[in-house]
Design a binder for these strands. Sequence first.
DNA 1: GACATGAAGATTGCATGCAATATTGGATTC
DNA 2: GAATCCAATATTGCATGCAATCTTCATGTC
Lengths: 242, 242
Amino acid sequence: MSTQLDSTAQAIREHLLAGELGSSGKLREQNLSQDFGVSRTVIRLALGQLELEGLVTREPNKGFRIRSFTLDEVTDAILVRGELEGMAARLCAQHGLSEVEQEGLRDILRKLDTLLAHGIQSLASRMAWIDLNDAFHARLIDFSRNASLSETIASLSGMPLVAASATVFDPKGLGPTLARLIAAQQDHHLVLEAICARESDRAGYIMREHARKSAENKKLGFDAMQRTQHVPALPGLALVTG
Amino acid sequence: MSTQLDSTAQAIREHLLAGELGSSGKLREQNLSQDFGVSRTVIRLALGQLELEGLVTREPNKGFRIRSFTLDEVTDAILVRGELEGMAARLCAQHGLSEVEQEGLRDILRKLDTLLAHGIQSLASRMAWIDLNDAFHARLIDFSRNASLSETIASLSGMPLVAASATVFDPKGLGPTLARLIAAQQDHHLVLEAICARESDRAGYIMREHARKSAENKKLGFDAMQRTQHVPALPGLALVTG
DNA sequence: GACATGAAGATTGCATGCAATATTGGATTC
DNA sequence: GAATCCAATATTGCATGCAATCTTCATGTC
């Protein structure tokens, strides 16, 4: 164990995103202190961090509250993420990728291809999709060789539903969800192709549109999603209000 | 006074950026506690905030250190800011600005025009330039109507030298500096023109290039700047290492 | 009944103390 | 003289206690 602060901050973060601490409610230091078995000092430090991450808000002498997000706020953040991922793709195309880097991305795409070919009904396949999708985006961003860009995207992705792989699976796991994922995978292929062809503007546009589709899908699916409660595992959903 | 935490965090931030706490050195809680006249608890909370802002780093059981930035890191961050300000300009052009909004921007540009026409030798005129330049950028970003975008740019601008108005004035205040500011002002006019003409892509490109020039200027002027010590007032310069 | 008032309780803001860990400096060995 | 070890010191991590502020709710007034 490194420090209680780090682990407590992470624990609170997870509980917040899971909606287990009430939605848009007040966070009382003493309660949290008892719940997590640490002193109020640690709780206060952790909440201070989460405030800067944007998950909670603080009002002097009144304490912390859970922040809730409107669907529009989420959409805005996704568009910003798309702009930055577009920049990452553009930079990759401009300076080019090494053979190793290209092969790494291609490998991920191959795995995603076979995954989607077999369907994503099982929970395991869905988690595999999340990991692979994350890996593709993360590598692309990393290969842009701009540390500030990576940090900024990472910071945005801490918001509920904003991360690239915060995707909504419909209960059946076929039909619309699969179609969306296949379309997304096409974008992945296209962007890699554009990068390798050094078509920087095209690569940037594809990534931007990729994010825009994701925002659109979240908007469309949100209502059904929220009511049917079929995706309890999607972190942060509890913090988003229509 | 709202809370000691807020004011202490701001005080430490300013001292850090002014380089008065040593560069890339260790920050001892007790020292800071005595210097700022608050308890170690408050210092620790404040440093926790500054860590998330990126100004200091923490190593468990070893405490906080001042983070130093390379010129390349600063450049990277400025390019990211430029990308996002380009997005802001593009959004403004896409949804259009109201008459009042347009007039507000035009008013700022008029004031900048007269300011630059009279030269920027005096300290007062330089501070006026900083304020007006900040105001132009801030309004443009605000008018984009994307809160996440505004927050992200604001967060980036907390880094040393990254803010739009973190400009380097040469000692004489004429010559290269004035020429650069006049060129920047041209960009301002062009971007507003593009926005009003609803040329969204063009508006975006102009803003991106605007930031790129700023990064370039900082790179070029950095060495001379740093040695001659003629710009002691530029916050954060002390934290940047070649 | 609606609203103001104020005291009791609850909650936050902060300082301090103690245990755990890291750092320093000198003695010892080779 | 250089390296190693260990004790003394310094520093961080955390829990607790108290004062200041906010919240609640019962009481009184119109």
